[in-house]
Write a protein that binds this DNA or RNA. Structure first.
Lengths: 254, 254
DNA sequence: TAGACTGTTTCTTATTACGCAACGCTGTTT
DNA sequence: AAACAGCGTTGCGTAATAAGAAACAGTCTA
């Protein structure tokens, strides 16, 4: 642990929390003091402070200290405050730098995907015309990535409501084919858009899960089909998968 | 805060966390220092310490400080350690399947109820943002179920400390009425929340007793008032009562 | 370009949290 | 029954430590 700029007693308090969090049954003052190699009374006073705020609770019978419910209070506030866009931004920037391709972030809303962020290569664009646009789910990489992980009943509903309209000659329009495509996506963990939405554009996309495990968003790397060869896709794949997984973690998905 | 066994810097750190948790967008060092009426550098060092442990994160762009994800880590450990939760889980899942309504599990803590589990219909939700929320006891089904079985002196104390604040026009705010309501709950063995906490939501709830016979927790089935007719409640009642009784047995209550 | 903001760092002072030791208390051992 | 050993808790003097004032290094604004 870095020793710079730290407040010792706060640091100790956080170490105590970490220690207490590891023992379900709780720990005693002396036990903690021994393990941390500091004085009993110091531990006692820190525990008292934490207890006053509900971060730690003392069992009335055993006298042992365990985690308190204030952690749940704070966590629920934290979960409420998470904004996908701001959380994803740095990861997308990094992915844009590494791949030097166009990166999109979309959220799932009313049977469609909505573009909420775009990065191009190394530079962060201030205004992107595509942000805010809606696109169908069945013919986009991001849409398929989300559909593959939605409850199958929901997916069926969406297909029923929206159909599988043709966008290019590569669009999958057969229901059975489309469902098995989604199965394949789920197995691989990522989806491909092989000119299904726009001729000449190929994408690789992954879903993003929120704290409750719902596929609420997706991101994609897209480029001209000529450049997006099988080798190039194989090369991009791990970066895309990792970025998606990192963002999901930031959203509280465990 | 009253007791003087407290470590000042730890206390300050916890105050800062509380402050930060209230602003989704985060707060700056100076902002916090002004609100707490202490020096900037003190705030800065405490924030640095909290940040090293991941309890607070600094936004790279704005420099503002927000809650960090360590709270989620600790909370998930806390939830694992609550044995009522693990014991109750299968029963709640079953009840969710049978009723196809939202099931909540709460524990009694510091004059309030804390939500520690939520099931929706057939599917088990991961950590939902409602988990960790606190609610008053007097206007919730789960709260009334617990209050009805606490020693009357304790119940009186809680009413005295917390009062009977209005939440909706259906909230019981008269002390005498409320006490006779609790008597009725105890006679029936279950409580009802008839839009007393939130308009449009009706609940049926039962207490859960630990090995010593204390009402340490409660569970509820809740749904939209339109759907929760008298007949529906009569239909749900036996399932809810049985689930509560089964969980109490698992906790050693005889 | 000057100014008003940030967050960060430095340094000095006395505040403050630390460690020591003793206190009740409980349960066990002799 | 009595002595002991363990616990969490408390009081106290001292020295380490965290707090504060002020300067620093950035960024954005006008």
């Amino acid at each position: 642990m870095e020793r710079e700029n730290m407040v010792k007693s706060v640091s100790r308090a956080l170490d105590i929390i970490a220690l207490v969090s590891m023992k379900k049954e709780g720990l005693g003052v002396t036990e903690i003091a021994n393990q941390m190699d500091i004085n009993k009374s110091s531990v006692y006073r820190i525990l008292s402070t934490l207890a006053q705020y509900g971060y730690i609770e003392q069992n009335a019978d055993s006298g042992r200290y365990r985690l308190g419910y204030t952690f749940l209070d704070i966590s629920s506030k934290l979960l409420d405050s998470i904004d996908i866009r701001t959380e994803a931004k740095p990861y997308l920037q990094e992915l844009g730098k590494v791949t030097d391709e166009v990166i999109h972030l979309v959220v799932y809303d009313h049977d469609e995907v909505v573009y909420i962020e775009k990065f191009e290569g190394t530079e962060t664009l201030r205004m992107h015309s595509k942000v805010g646009r809606r696109a169908p789910m069945h013919c986009t990489g991001v849409g398929k990535a989300i559909l593959a992980y939605l409850p199958s009943a929901t997916t069926e509903d969406i297909i029923h409501r929206k159909g599988l309209p043709v966008h290019t000659k590569y669009t999958i329009t057969d229901r059975a084919n489309f469902l098995s495509e989604l199965e394949a996506v789920k197995q691989r963990g990522y989806s491909l858009d092989l000119q299904e939405n726009e001729v000449g554009i190929t994408c690789i996309a992954v879903p993003i899960f929120d704290h409750a495990g719902n596929p609420v968003a997706a991101l994609s790397v897209s480029g001209p089909t000529i450049r997006m060869t099988d080798e190039r896709i194989e090369e991009l794949k791990p970066h895309v998968l990792e970025t998606g997984s990192n963002i999901s973690k930031r959203l509280g998905y465990r």
